[in-house]
């Protein structure tokens, strides 16, 4: 399937990929330091493991560039 990661198109050869899997593959070491948008909407961190990506999904990692996250 094709997803858009931070605006860049990526072909993925899996169908059961979770948000958490993508974070791992992108080297996001600590999920609390990043905010996730799925299709331009906020995704609460409790859904990172359960939420599976589907073809055409757009996922963005947003960093605060500052403290007090």
């Amino acid at each position: 399937m094709k997803i858009f990661l931070n605006g860049d198109a990526q072909e993925i050869d899996r169908t059961d990929l979770s948000v958490s899997d993508i974070m791992l593959s992108e080297g996001v070491k600590s999920p609390e330091t990043v905010m996730v948008q799925l299709n331009e909407e906020y995704l609460p961190s409790e859904h990172f493991i359960s939420k599976k990506l589907k073809d055409g999904d757009s996922i963005d990692f947003v960093y605060f560039m500052g403290g007090g996250r």
Binding site: N6, G7, T33, V34, F61, V62, Y63, F64, M65, G66
Partner: peptide, 9 residues
Amino acid sequence: AFEGKRPGH
């Protein structure tokens, strides 16, 4: 960094 898509000041 400007788009907030990677950490960094």
